[in-house]
């Protein structure tokens, strides 16, 4: 068993918290893990990604071979498409549709959504809107983690335990809010078309 994941977004959107949550659950389950991160200049509002690899056997490379990615989990729609060459023919694209517009030539959002909808295996949701509806504005990334959770070969309870551990310092209210966000994201993903295939 192996899961090779690209986490994508814009510097400051919290993809490293997603990586940390998945990593904690994977390690607890006794899986091998490698995770390459981006630090430094690109963090200032540029595109960022993390290569996250989970396996029940030792992992060789810190980087995933291009064309070998099982799952792109993006917290931003344009960033989701940037890593398509990495995706394997059977891979899934799971993305937030709320754009992060910090450049003057940001493409048309409807065109981006159409492009995502053309991908054979995809899940789209507006995590920012869902977070606002839940009055948990800062939990959009955890909603996305929930949406990706059916693909991770980790039990939802294991991921929830990691969420609790990571947000513990911020108090029980924040923990509960993020667990609710996680469950909501998971529920929405499971309702989407094509999910019976996984």
């Amino acid at each position: 068993m192996k899961k090779d994941i690209i986490l994508a977004g814009v510097g400051g959107q919290g993809i490293l918290s997603i990586a940390a949550t998945i990593g904690m659950a994977a390690v607890r389950k006794g899986l091998y893990m490698k995770q390459a991160e981006v630090h430094g200049m690109s963090q200032r509002g540029g595109d960022v990604q993390s290569n996250l690899r989970l396996s029940d056997e030792p992992i060789a490379s810190d980087l995933i071979p291009r064309g070998g990615v099982d799952l792109i989990l993006s917290v931003e729609p344009m960033e989701a498409l940037r890593y398509l060459p990495m995706l394997s023919p059977n891979g899934w694209l799971i993305t937030n549709t709320a754009p992060h517009i910090n450049i003057p030539n940001y493409p048309d959002l409807e065109a981006l959504k159409e492009e995502i909808a053309h991908q054979p295996r995809h899940v789209m949701l507006d995590a920012d809107q869902i977070a606002r509806d839940m009055e948990a504005r800062r939990s959009a990334n955890i909603i996305m983690l929930g949406a990706a959770s059916p693909f991770l070969c980790l039990e939802p309870q294991e991921l929830e335990a990691s969420i609790a551990q990571i947000f513990q310092r911020k108090g029980q209210e924040v923990v509960d809010q993020n667990i609710a966000a996680f469950r909501k994201g998971r529920e929405i993903a499971l309702e989407q078309e094509g999910m019976q295939d996984i």
Binding site: G11, R66, L84, P85, S88, P89, A111
Partner: peptide, 19 residues
């Protein structure tokens, strides 16, 4: 290695910027 689909042309660079 068989690479995935090409990056769609509507994707533009997002350079780092001042906060």
């Amino acid at each position: 290695h068989q690479e995935g689909r090409p990056v769609p042309s509507l994707v533009v660079p997002r350079p780092p910027s001042l906060c």
